[in-house]
C-alpha cells in the first residue's frame, strides 16, 4: 500500500504550522475585536440549533425523569404547603380583584392608562444548548428573527428571569444568562423598592452592586427587575437576596438548579431616546399651540 506526498511528514508539519498560525490569528483577532465574526457565529448557531434540538430530546427526557423522581419525594410535604398557600391566595386574589377594579375606575376618571410593563405576548422556545463554562454563561434557543425575537428581549422560565437576548439569527438566538460576567440588570426589592444593579460574576449567585441603600436590602427579600433604563420590563421575578459575605449581597436565582427546557421570550419594546423618536411637524405645531395657549392664560 502507498501514500502520496500529501501524506508526508513535510506536509504534516506545514499543515500543523498553518493550523497553529490560523488559530493564533483568530484568537488574537477575537481578543482585540468585540464583534469579530459575529455574523458567522450567529449563522453557525442557526444551522446547528435544529440538530441540537433533536439530540437534546433524550437528555431532556432524562432530566424530566430525574425531576419527577425528585418531585415525588417531596410531593406530600409540598401538597400540604400548597393547600395552605391556595387558601391564602384565594383571599388575596379577591382583594387584588377589588383593587384592580378600583384602579381601573381611577384611571378612567383621570383619563390615564399606565397599563402593565410585562408584555402579554410571549414567544415560546427551547433552550437547546446551555453553556456553563469557565468563561461564558450563555444559552442557545431555537427561536430567532423569523419569530420576532430581537436583541435585548427578556428571556424567562416558569421560575423567573433567565437572561436577555444578546444575538439573534434567523432561527436561533444567543441568550446571555444572569450569571455571566458581562450581565448587568437593573433590579429592585419588591418589599422596600430599593434599587441596585445585578452583576453576574460567572458564579451561581450574581452580586448586587450600586445598591441605593444597603440597609433596605434584607436577606430573603424578593428581587425583581426595576425597569430602570427602559431595557427590560418592570416586575420580572429574579430571585431572593442572600448573604454573600461581609457587606456583600448576592442573589439566589429562581432559575438555578432547575432543568432549563422551555423558555419564553418577552417581546418588550424598550423606550426610545428622544433623538431616535422625534416628534412630527404636526406634533410640534400642537405643542407650540399648547404653549401659546398656556401663555395667554397666564396673567
Amino acid at each position: 500500500m502507498y501514500r502520496s506526498e500529501l501524506n508526508s511528514p513535510r506536509a504534516t508539519h506545514i499543515t500543523l504550522l498553518l493550523a497553529f498560525a490560523l488559530s493564533a490569528i483568530l484568537f488574537a483577532a477575537d481578543r482585540n475585536s468585540e464583534g469579530f465574526l459575529e455574523r458567522e457565529k450567529v449563522g453557525v448557531g442557526s444551522v446547528i440549533s435544529p440538530i441540537l434540538t433533536v439530540i437534546s430530546h433524550p437528555f431532556r427526557g432524562i432530566e424530566n425523569f430525574a425531576g419527577q423522581f425528585k418531585d415525588r419525594n417531596r410531593a406530600l410535604a409540598e401538597n400540604k404547603a400548597l393547600k395552605e398557600e391556595l387558601y391564602r391566595l384565594r383571599e388575596a386574589k379577591e382583594r387584588s380583584d377589588i383593587v384592580a377594579m378600583k384602579l381601573a375606575r381611577f384611571e378612567q376618571i383621570l383619563g390615564t392608562d399606565f397599563g402593565g410593563d410585562v408584555p402579554q405576548q410571549k414567544i415560546a422556545a427551547r433552550a437547546v444548548s446551555e453553556i456553563d463554562g469557565p468563561f461564558v454563561r450563555s444559552a442557545l434557543i431555537n427561536a430567532g428573527r423569523k419569530r420576532g425575537v430581537k436583541v435585548g428581549h427578556a428571556v424567562m422560565t416558569v421560575d423567573g428571569l433567565y437572561g436577555h437576548v444578546l444575538r439573534v439569527g434567523s432561527n436561533s438566538s444567543r441568550v446571555l444568562r444572569l450569571e455571566d460576567l458581562n450581565s448587568r440588570i437593573a433590579v429592585m426589592s419588591s418589599e422596600s423598592g430599593a434599587t441596585a444593579i445585578l452583576a453576574g460574576d460567572n458564579s451561581h449567585q450574581p452580586v448586587l452592586t450600586f445598591a441605593s441603600d444597603i440597609a433596605e436590602w434584607d436577606i430573603g427579600s424578593t428581587v425583581i427587575t426595576s425597569g430602570d433604563g427602559g431595557v427590560l420590563p418592570r416586575g420580572l421575578p429574579i430571585g431572593t437576596v442572600a448573604n454573600g459575605g461581609p457587606s456583600r449581597l448576592v442573589v439566589d436565582l429562581n432559575v438555578t438548579g432547575s432543568p432549563i427546557d422551555w423558555v419564553w421570550v418577552l417581546p418588550f419594546t424598550p423606550i426610545s431616546p428622544p433623538e431616535a423618536d422625534p416628534v412630527s411637524s404636526d406634533g410640534d405645531s400642537q405643542i407650540a399651540e399648547a404653549i401659546g395657549a398656556s401663555g395667554q392664560e397666564s396673567p
Binding site: D30, F36, V44
Partner: peptide, 10 residues
C-alpha cells in the same frame, strides 16, 4: 468555539 461563544481559536 462558535457554538459555545468561547474565545475564538482557543
Amino acid at each position: 468555539d462558535f457554538l459555545t461563544f468561547e474565545p475564538l481559536g482557543i
